[in-house]
């Protein structure tokens, strides 16, 4: 009992559990648990044959956290910085550490600009975004959208009415911006 010294008796003994659940207790000894102890120098380098890896080429313009002492030897090269979103993101990296909220807020702003800008360029490139296929909602009838949600004690049903607004409003705004941008570009020509 909680208000006295003993721990409450378990409903099932270890023997009962071992009989009921395949593998019960095989990792009872912490030494058998792969993440124990948490930190110790280990011999196994899981296949690495270097002390410090060779450096990947092409890192000259690569943005990095100012908490790093140098550019790490290996990095991702997807979607390099470009355009207005690139300016915002580069500012976030150059100026503010990860400890600084502005670092993250600038990156979030960059994300929104990136996604808006790419809607415009995708129209110009003849591959416009398609709300029906890109949101995946066409699967609703096949995935039993209504019966999956209703009458099932799901707490998310309380706010799912917002989802069309949260997903839909940006589509409407984007469509407006794309229309204005494309019209502006046509006139400019």
């Amino acid at each position: 009992m909680t208000y006295t010294a003993e721990k409450p008796d378990p409903a099932e003994s270890s023997e009962q559990l071992r009989a009921r659940i395949p593998g019960w207790g095989v990792d009872l000894d912490p030494k058998d648990r792969p993440s124990f102890p948490r930190e110790q120098l280990i011999e196994d380098r899981t296949g690495a044959h270097w002390d410090f890896p060779e450096r990947q080429a092409g890192g000259e313009r690569r943005e990095r956290s100012i908490e790093h002492g140098m550019l790490p030897p290996v990095f991702g090269t997807v979607a390099p910085l470009h355009g207005v979103s690139g300016v915002l993101r580069r500012l976030a990296y150059r100026k503010y550490s990860e400890a600084h909220t502005l670092h993250w807020l600038l990156l979030v702003a960059g994300d929104r600009v990136d996604s808006l800008g790419s809607s415009v360029t995708s129209v110009l490139r003849g591959k416009p975004d398609n709300p029906l296929t890109e949101t995946g909602i066409l699967i609703e009838p096949r995935a039993h959208g209504l019966s999956s949600r209703l009458g099932r004690n799901r707490v998310d049903v309380k706010h799912q009415w917002m989802d069309p607004l949260i997903v839909g409003t940006p589509w409407v705004l984007r469509a407006g911006v794309v229309y204005l941008a494309v019209r502006g570009l046509r006139r400019g020509r």
Partner: peptide, 18 residues
């Protein structure tokens, strides 16, 4: 990595140290 904390490798992510 030398201490088994592979998810915390310091040589692969320029964008964040955390």
């Amino acid at each position: 990595c030398a201490r088994g904390l592979y998810s915390n490798c310091h040589n692969v992510n320029p964008n964040a140290t955390a």
